[in-house]
């Protein structure tokens, strides 16, 4: 059947209609959150029963944002989270890709056993090991500018170092590396490149997509940390955003301020996501190919 223009136009219209309806389903809680952050509590709660919940109508102001900043050091929390998240993501990309490089390309005694162990750790829920891990890090030594001392509590490192390496990230890299053409590696070795040079000059430049995937996955995990910082950080100066959410749940919950805080802490994630969007969607995609 030949495609006539009217029919084509109609089909396009239907397609967009469907796309838009689905988009509504995905976006409405976020619209609700952002709109609510501008409303006083009484109106916010009254509006939840009608479509007004999605509209910036009524008594609109930035008061909730001022309130949120008065109630908690929002900037500090966001800064802490971004710092911890950023450092972990960078270190994780380096260390996990190095390990994966070794697992994927090199042959050495014990490789298969170690790789099985790494993959088995994928299925250990963190809640399981939180307490043993707490006991461990509270006794670890650290050499700082002020000399040697014991215990990692109340620091950035305690929020970063245990999270650098994980099974999923290594597994992602291994699966990706295995699909790279092996001849490239061999060719560079024949030319006399060291393993480090092969990793750095040959493999890494080809790994953009998997790096982006691993980065965003780690970013999401780290930025949303709650239980771990809760038990290892007692000083406000190291607290991250999700623990900070607790500041808003007093006996009297200030819902408008909660929404304002949620909106504020979502901004860095959305920004990071939008920046990486192109690379990101392409890259999550590429891991699917290898799965």
């Amino acid at each position: 059947m030949a495609v006539n223009p009217d029919n084509y136009g109609l089909r396009l219209f239907v397609r967009y209609l469907v796309l838009c309806l689905i988009a509504l389903i995905f976006i409405f809680p976020l619209v609700f959150m952002i709109n609510s952050s501008f409303k006083p509590d009484s109106q916010l709660l009254a509006d939840t029963s009608s479509l007004r919940a999605f509209l910036p109508v009524g008594d609109i102001s930035l008061n909730n944002y001022f309130g949120a900043f008065r109630r908690a050091p929002v900037g500090l929390f966001v800064l802490n989270s971004v710092l911890v998240t950023g450092a972990t993501v960078l270190l994780s990309l380096l260390i996990c890709s190095l390990a994966a490089f070794s697992f994927a390309f090199l042959r050495w005694k014990g490789r298969d056993v170690l790789l099985s162990v790494v993959i088995a750790t994928l299925i250990i829920p963190f809640e399981t090991i939180a307490i043993p891990l707490l006991l461990l890090v509270s006794k670890l030594p650290w050499i700082g500018l002020d000399g040697l001392h014991w215990g990692w509590l109340n620091s950035y490192r305690v929020q970063i170092i245990p999270w650098i390496a994980d099974g999923l990230t290594i597994f992602l890299f291994v699966q990706y590396f295995k699909a790279l053409p092996g001849e490239l590696i061999e060719a560079s070795r024949v030319e006399g490149a060291s393993w480090w040079q092969v990793y750095y000059r040959v493999v890494m430049p080809l790994s953009g997509p998997v790096l982006a995937t691993a980065a965003i996955l780690k970013f999401l995990i780290m930025y949303n940390q709650y239980l771990w910082p809760l038990i290892v950080v007692q000083q406000e100066s190291y607290r991250p955003v999700m623990v900070g959410l607790g500041y808003f749940f007093q006996l009297n919950v200030a819902w408008g301020e909660v929404m304002a805080y949620l909106t504020l802490i979502t901004v860095p994630v959305l920004t990071f996501y939008l920046l990486l969007q192109r690379a990101f969607i392409a890259s999550i995609a590429s891991t699917g190919v290898k799965g």
Binding site: I131, L134, L135, S138, G151, L153, L230, I231, V232, Q234, Q235, E236, V243, G244, L245, G246, Y247, F249, Q250, L251
Partner: peptide
């Protein structure tokens, strides 16, 4: 003084006690 969110205060103290802190 160090202040904690009330919701998780008891967990924070229990964890700190375990860690001797």
């Amino acid at each position: 003084i160090e202040s904690f969110p009330e919701k998780s205060y008891n967990d924070s103290v229990a964890a700190a006690a375990l860690a001797g802190n």
